[in-house]
Design a protein around this nucleic acid. Sequence first.
DNA 1: GCTTGAATTGAACAATCGTTCAGATCACAC
DNA 2: GTGTGATCTGAACGATTGTTCAATTCAAGC
Lengths: 213, 213
Amino acid sequence: MPRKSGSHGQITGPRVRQAALRLFAQEGYAAVSMRRIAAEVGVQAGALYTYTPDKQALLADLMRGHMEDLLATWAREHHPKAPKDRLRHFTEFHIRYHLERPDEVFVSYMELRNLSPENFAEIEGLRRRYEDALEGILQAGRADGVFAIADTKLATLALIAMLTGVNTWYREGGRLGRAAVSDVYWSMVIGAVGCVAEKSGSQSTSMATAAES
Amino acid sequence: MPRKSGSHGQITGPRVRQAALRLFAQEGYAAVSMRRIAAEVGVQAGALYTYTPDKQALLADLMRGHMEDLLATWAREHHPKAPKDRLRHFTEFHIRYHLERPDEVFVSYMELRNLSPENFAEIEGLRRRYEDALEGILQAGRADGVFAIADTKLATLALIAMLTGVNTWYREGGRLGRAAVSDVYWSMVIGAVGCVAEKSGSQSTSMATAAES
DNA sequence: GCTTGAATTGAACAATCGTTCAGATCACAC
DNA sequence: GTGTGATCTGAACGATTGTTCAATTCAAGC
């Protein structure tokens, strides 16, 4: 009984990527078979190859899509002028954007070693561009004498690791909401770059909004 | 032609774990076959089952061993009294210990989802105990009025994520040595908990030791 | 030097892997 | 309605998977 009725490539294609993303995030690229992805979509394994040349390309496309979306969205944001405001904006953007896409983030951080060398180089290049966005802010702030940073490259990697770490523990409906989490992390970010925490924009300071359990 | 000459269980056992650790770290648990591990040791696949009941136990043993070593080593350290000194000690210990065991750290962070539910619960419990060590320091410092921390649990997770992040980029023989990296991170840690960076112990301050490329 | 038990081989097991493809079926333009 | 191309099935391919086990060989105690 071939071909389910009512099926379109326009529908199946995205569903394949969506199922692959979810399964890769949940169980890992190497542990998920093409048949499992197909079953999730409600299709036979062979049908997947209408939408991807192979499993490797499926992974690479997911990761490339995530990184390109991240860069494009960041580019579309309105960027404040003062380094301190720009850093706060980056902090909030990073946490917000990443918390909204836990599966994409997880796959993009965990499956790097399962990329072919060519795909790895490409994804790493995109990640590097994102890191450069933050490092630019830190350099500007240091040049202005606002930030006290020993090494902007290290600080960039340290802050991104800290911020992305939110994804490993944050759960919807938990003790703190996203805004509160963002505030708490902002206070740590601004401290880490050598500023005493104080108001830097329109929003509330962190110490007031987070309630310990 | 069975059994190589000169072989002992006392030797092969550790070599199996060592090969498994290296391969799991490099290519991932799911992507490494028992035959590959055996080949690395110079033995047939069946021989591995003298040293582990199955592949899952091999992974769990590696991760349990790492976490227990971490906790035991931390417990054996001499712990300063003042919260600020204790935090600096934790920072340096964490970076030093983790940089010395990149494979163990990588496997323990990346392969959690490949653990059976029982093994996962056990490893998570050990990890939790380590986090509690840091949170205890932060709570003491906040109680003393030394640290300005909105949420000690979040700060714990944020700092550990930041510190463990060193493992993702640090390479031996790179621009900065371990001591310099440790100093730079200490300045960010102490700032993140709301202290202005200053001398807190015997060692040099960070701003002086790190040279930008 | 013989014996005993630990260590290892090598073959085998059923299951699953990614991928291919001829053929069947459906959606849609005309 | 008819034809055409996109879509999907179902079976098959060889390779590889984790694990088992009888048979074999080695190391060591006596």
